[in-house]
Simulated assay, not measured.
Amino acid sequence: MPYRDLTRTVDTDMPVFPGDPTVTVEPHATHQEDGYRVSAVECGSHAGTHVDAPSHTEADGRTLDALDVDRFARDAVMADCRGRSPRSPIGPDALPATDADLVVVRTGWDEYWGEGTYFDHPHLTPEAAEFCVEQGYDVAIDALNVDPTPTDDAPSQGVPAHHALLGRGHLVFENLTDLADLPRRFRFLAFPLKLADGDGAPVRAVARYD
């Protein structure tokens, strides 16, 4: 059974949500000086490919360490939402109704990783997020955010999709990559670091399929 890594490599100065902590990966100990290697890693809890726990946007939301580990293994369905213009909305009509428990929204925006355009990704409308709740879906996306990302040229519009999803106990996975040629249905595995009181954490996201 094939596996596909859908995860961004954690590296110094990788793209992050505006205002979030920057990422650094630096040598702490080396073979030459210490006889072994240790890296010092500094990042925010939502760096790279990560999961948002309900407590990310909801004051009374559950934290990562309160969730069972099987919560991060999902039966996924792909929604092909490519070909859209920057900052365009994705409505419920673009999403499938199935018996899956996670929808993977493929925007194609992962190709802009490291470019300014990456921040101008398509996004879910509040209605699309509500549709996902009605279907029982968690949501994953190959973009920085399920909501519009604020920039100098685009003021914040808040996080209505996050509130709709996380406020009902659903999970959000962001910054996926390498979705090309995956089947429409597959098993999605994305296990986070078990951070105490975690509002989110990096994951190693993997697709498993026939």
Rank of each mutant, 00 (worst) to 15 (best):
C132I: 08
P92R: 08
P202D: 04
E58V: 15
D20Y: 14
V105D: 01
H50M: 02
Y36M: 04
D75I: 04
D34L: 05
Y137D: 07
H163S: 10
Q157Y: 12
V139T: 06
D120Q: 11
G35E: 08
T63F: 10
D34T: 13
H50K: 03
D199Q: 09
L171T: 07
H123A: 09
A47F: 02
V69I: 14
H162K: 14
Y118T: 01
P155K: 03
A73N: 10
E42F: 03
E58L: 09
P89N: 04
D199I: 15
A154H: 15
D101F: 03
A73L: 12
A196P: 12
Y118A: 03
M14T: 05
D178T: 14
D13T: 04
M14Q: 13
T24S: 15
H162T: 11
D75W: 05
W113D: 12
G48D: 05
L176G: 00
G61P: 00
E115N: 12
E33R: 14
G116M: 06
A190Q: 01
E134F: 02
D34N: 13
S85W: 08
L193Q: 10
E130P: 00
P89D: 05
V103C: 13
D65H: 13
E111W: 02
Y209M: 06
R204H: 14
P96M: 06
V159H: 09
P2M: 08
T151S: 06
F188P: 02
L102I: 15
D11A: 13
P150Y: 09
